[in-house]
């Protein structure tokens, strides 16, 4: 019974991981090409990693911290606002409810070729009036990301709220609980797995963005990992793949570590017995 699960799990893991072995090889290869050769690990050097941490030109540790700060704040904000909205959509009946939901999906489908120009103009206007939300501000960038918080996440979380029987909050309300108490004390703990999943997604999406982040934060000390790394390879001639690969690997660590920590929340409701079923 167990073996066949491994027969699926092992190949799936190989498919998931083997391309990344190339990244690891590239980060250790002195000539620093991404896929220039298939004899992996023929030569090994730590020079690209050393470059990452010693090069004043690329304040990599700074970028790393910036990405974490922006990622965590965005994730927390997105989850909170998304959960609030999902609660409203799931538990209340109000005018514009269904069209509101449809609207959230629609706005996601809008082809945003020009978003970066529009966002730039908006934030440069903010800079004149209210600098903390304008260009060059980390908070400003987080707010831009939070502007997208309602879309996917609300829709996703609403589905989970819907799967929790309404009788639960109705009986609590009969016991005199307010809507806020129902939300914070009863529902949120129950949908914990999806809260964790959504915050992870939002964190990853933030870590990966280089277009808007590169637009808003121009000071090298403020920049994020994705922006910094993209600089290394965006120029067609003379790309620094080795340093890029090393940076991308280290940049992926927070997500992986975070996931290990959050796993048990995702698996919260499960007991060991179910595995054997």
């Amino acid at each position: 019974m167990r073996l066949w699960r491994h027969l699926v799990g092992v190949p799936a893991s190989v498919v998931a991981l083997f391309p990344l072995v190339f990244v690891l090889a590239a980060s250790l290869n002195p000539s620093g090409t991404l896929t220039g050769s298939n004899d992996l690990f023929a030569e090994v050097t730590w020079q690209h990693y050393a470059t990452l941490f010693t090069d004043a030109l690329h304040p990599f540790p700074r970028w790393f911290v910036n990405s974490l700060v922006i990622g965590v704040s965005t994730a927390a904000g997105s989850v909170f606002m998304g959960a609030c909205a999902a609660y409203a959509f799931s538990r209340f009946r109000f005018r514009g409810r269904s069209s509101g939901l449809v609207g959230l999906v629609f706005i996601q489908m809008f082809p945003q070729v020009l978003a970066y120009v529009a966002i730039f103009l908006l934030l440069s206007a903010f800079k004149e009036v209210f600098p903390p939300l304008g260009l060059g501000s980390t908070l400003g960038l987080i707010m831009v990301y939070l502007g997208g918080a309602l879309g996917v996440n609300t829709y996703l979380m609403k589905g989970f709220f819907d799967s929790i029987p309404r009788e639960l909050d109705e009986s609590a309300q009969m016991d005199g609980a307010s809507h806020a108490q129902v939300f914070f004390l009863i529902l949120l703990p129950l949908v914990r797995p999806i809260l964790v999943v959504v915050s992870l997604f939002s964190f990853v999406a933030t870590m990966n963005d280089f277009v808007i982040a590169g637009l808003v934060l121009t000071d090298p000390d403020q920049q994020t990992l994705a922006v910094g790394l993209y600089q290394l390879v965006s120029y067609q001639l003379g790309q620094s793949w080795g340093v890029f690969a090393a940076g991308a690997l280290i940049g992926a660590l927070p997500v992986l570590i975070l996931f290990q920590f959050l796993q048990r929340y995702i698996v919260g409701g499960l007991t060991s017995g179910a595995v054997k079923a």
């Binding site: 799990g9 998931a16 990244v23």
Partner: peptide, 18 residues
């Protein structure tokens, strides 16, 4: 793979990359 933590940790790798 429900319940196999190792696989869950490994399969998330592609997602952690830009």
């Amino acid at each position: 793979l429900d319940g196999y933590r190792v696989y869950r940790s490994l399969l998330v790798f592609p997602y952690a990359f830009p």
